[in-house]
Nucleic acid binder design. Structure first.
Lengths: 219, 219
DNA sequence: ATTAATTTTTAGTCTAGCCTAAAAATTTTA
DNA sequence: TAAAATTTTTAGGCTAGACTAAAAATTAAT
């Protein structure tokens, strides 16, 4: 079954929205991320439902079918592998690669993806710490995720850090962020992705996205 | 000026056809390579003419404008650089990379292309011996081209070989192909790209595409 | 130099993927 | 729980890029 550029984008975006909720995904949420109007989204959801990639019921939102999730995971896999390539091999900064990877993720060649994976030495996460699905669509069990990726309102325990430069660790100490601390994100500011964080039940403090990315937590 | 996938393909194909002739390119020739019908090609040529990328006159064929050639050369540059990447870094064989490069050539990021160029150590030719245009759209002056790339009917002199395995060189000797020989292609067979070759004015003999690729000639 | 064959263009359609405006369903608020 | 606000869907349109069938121009053949 042939799949178009546009369809791949929809699947990827529905997948991303599904990651941080177990509810059905709303038409509007998809419209916002695809940069389309809600009416166009409805249109596309109906078509993708016919193809069996999503389970969709009028006014009730949508979720990925098993096939749909498989396809989405494959796109995510490609996106994240290309990001590793761009940062590790081409010398881009982690914040410059997203748009290019958005394009590269649509390249169709299973063999190429496998060879790329090997060339990069089978990375388990992308430059932002997000896990890279394997060929079968399984996510590696990391046992932890970057604090930056934790959904708002869920609590987790600080189990490690993703880098160990002195300045970073000193900052953690100053913020009272130590191993074992109980963490809950109360807010994420869209402007700079900075995070309001409740530590061990205390009133929330503000930390930067950069810090949140390098703090590893277990749910 | 935004450019679509389809438009890029047309420009690239017109460029390719222009390489082996100085005549205007016919609608039918383009239709064959784009795998479209002639009517669709006429349509597109009119549109691209309006944008100033080609000079087109009804029934008279088409040729690239200066802007059009610039765009085409940029696509060719990307295509050939990605081919080098696929062969040299990803371990593909030279005959497996064309389709993938057809996709990669449309990735839009000038920075990426520059970094790729550097990563590959500024190659002057792709895995098939075709020259890679530089950033400005200039073709490197190689002083020679693979025999396989010489237009039918033009004569050239054998000035080198692109590989030096014993079996290959032994075959050249057997075929009476030695340095300085005067060569003229009389026919290229579409089926296997084998070449009918006149050597020093003698009656044509048949050689494989593989051989023709590895024989370097000067026009 | 006509006629025949071929090539190219025109005219009219179709589909994917988007849009706007209005209608319908759902959710929130008083 | 009825009215108001919001979300979602329907209906109808638009453009890019393809198509077929028929007409027009060009080229080849008698």
């Amino acid at each position: 079954m042939a799949i178009s550029f546009a369809e791949e984008n929809y699947l990827k975006i529905i997948y991303r929205l599904s990651e941080s909720t177990s509810d059905d995904i709303s038409t509007n949420a998809i419209a916002e991320l695809t940069q389309n109007k809600a009416a166009s989204v409805t249109d596309m959801l109906r078509k993708m439902s016919d193809k069996g990639w999503v389970n969709y019921q009028k006014y009730q939102g949508v979720r990925l079918s098993e096939t749909g999730e498989k396809i989405a995971l494959d796109i995510v896999r490609k996106h994240r592998l290309w990001e590793v390539f761009l940062v590790n091999k081409m010398g881009f900064n982690w914040d410059e690669v997203h748009e290019i990877a958005e394009q590269l993720e649509h390249i169709e060649s299973e063999v190429l993806v496998d060879k790329l994976d090997a060339f990069l030495d089978y990375p388990r996460t992308d430059p932002h710490g997000d896990p890279i699905p394997n060929k079968k669509g399984e996510l590696p069990q990391l046992g932890y995720i970057p604090l930056a990726n934790m959904p708002i309102g869920k609590a987790g325990k600080l189990v490690g850090v993703a880098q160990d430069s002195a300045v970073f660790l000193q900052l953690l100490t100053k913020l009272n962020l130590k191993l074992g601390a109980n963490l809950e994100i109360t807010e994420i500011n869209a402007f700079d992705l900075s995070v309001s964080l409740r530590i061990d039940g205390n009133p929330p403090v503000l930390i930067s996205h950069e810090v949140a990315k390098n703090v590893l937590i277990k749910r």
